[in-house]
Design a binder for these strands. Structure first.
Lengths: 223, 223
DNA sequence: GTCTATAATGGGATAGAC
DNA sequence: GTCTATCCCATTATAGAC
């Protein structure tokens, strides 16, 4: 009887605690995995390697993620969540275009600085054809990008910015900002540093914002 | 005696013909391999897959390339040769900055359009830390990039262009132009096409050149 | 130079004890 | 949930006949 009483005494608390632990452990594993996937690519990553770096056995990792693909999907999901969270900037069209674009560039650069591995995993997936994640990109990324483009085109229609190709301008912004995560290895070699500094990102921000704002200026009428 | 005479009769011609064939075959294999490496990554690429697409057996391929790494190195070498050939643009400082920068952007965009796989293989190598090719990048790419930066800084010193950070401006140009190869998968989804068209690249060129020239404050001709 | 055969390795995944 | 043991398969690479 006492055993039964014990068993039913705090099951909810136990389960929820266990669930919490599991969630935390899964998150920890994913946090390790994103770095390994970024460094080694999908095929180049072995789950044994991820497990070792996360401090558990390969078989134990596979208890939490039944397959390598499942782990990769989880990593990409988290990457995409983080990425999309920072791209909502253009969505509300109350502020001035210049301010919003500046904030947009800043947000994307901050993502490159704070989550370089996330950016790299996403980049490699896209570069190699998004064979595994194309559908998710189609359903979650593309609509947001289209929305940003639409906002920009409304600014053009309202005469707030110069009439340039909004789609390609946004392609340019994404490319410039992402490259500070994806190609930092090369930048570091050119700049002769160990790694990119805060100042490098500040310099980058100035140049990129300068380019974007210069491009959207309504041209002076020709004499 | 006659056998010896036969053996030394036309060895040079035979050898050179054989060498030519071998060179062509090796080049063909490398041309196939660059696409597979771009799609699958280094680890994701099997030499059996490359061999099949090149129309020979796996073992036969390994007669020409003794190891997978050797094939990969060869591919990266060719990629780099092609890439560097198009980046000399800024080297001679005779023309006007605006004209040279326009030509520079055009050349890089053309590379993205004509050799997307080369660009992607290089990108993936850099993104994953250039663990295999870092030394080559250091010795062959970085000096050229530094030279371009130097040319730009001379323009600034001569008052020909606005005083902006030349290094980051060139980072921006490389990022924008390369992205039309590396991230074309995503662009295609946004643009709702099967693949990027010549017009897309023309539009890209206009926007990028516009941004760069606006940033360096070179007055643009009135229409 | 091209083939068959085969080593040798590594990694993903499963089974079952505890 | 964690461990040991194991299976199975793909892949790189080599050996040797022709």
């Amino acid at each position: 009887m006492s055993t039964i009483a014990r068993a039913s005494a705090e099951p909810v608390a136990k389960i929820s605690r266990r669930v919490l632990n599991r969630d935390k452990l899964e998150a920890d594993i994913a946090a390790v995995a994103v770095r390994v996937f970024a460094e080694c690519g999908y095929e180049g990553t072995s789950i044994a390697d991820v497990a070792e770096r996360a401090g558990l056995s390969k078989q134990n990792l596979m208890y939490y993620y039944p397959s390598k693909q499942a782990l990769y999907q989880r990593v990409l999901d988290e990457v995409l969540d983080e990425w999309l969270a920072r791209m909502e900037s253009l969505a509300d069209a109350t502020q001035e275009p210049a301010d919003m674009l500046r904030a947009y560039v800043q947000a994307k650069l901050r993502f490159s600085r704070e989550q370089p591995w996330a950016s790299r995993v996403y980049a490699m997936e896209v570069i190699s054809g998004a064979q595994l994640y194309g559908a998710q990109i189609q359903s979650r990324v593309v609509p947001l990008l289209r929305k940003d483009i639409e906002v920009f085109e409304q600014w053009i229609a309202a005469g707030k910015v110069a009439p340039i190709n909004a789609t390609h301008l946004l392609f340019a912004i994404w490319a410039m900002t992402q490259s500070y995560a994806d190609f930092s290895t090369q930048m570091v070699l050119v700049l002769n540093r160990k790694q990119l500094t805060k100042k490098d990102f500040d310099d980058a921000e100035k140049v990129i914002v300068n380019m974007v704002l210069a491009a959207i200026q309504v041209p002076q009428p020709c004499p």
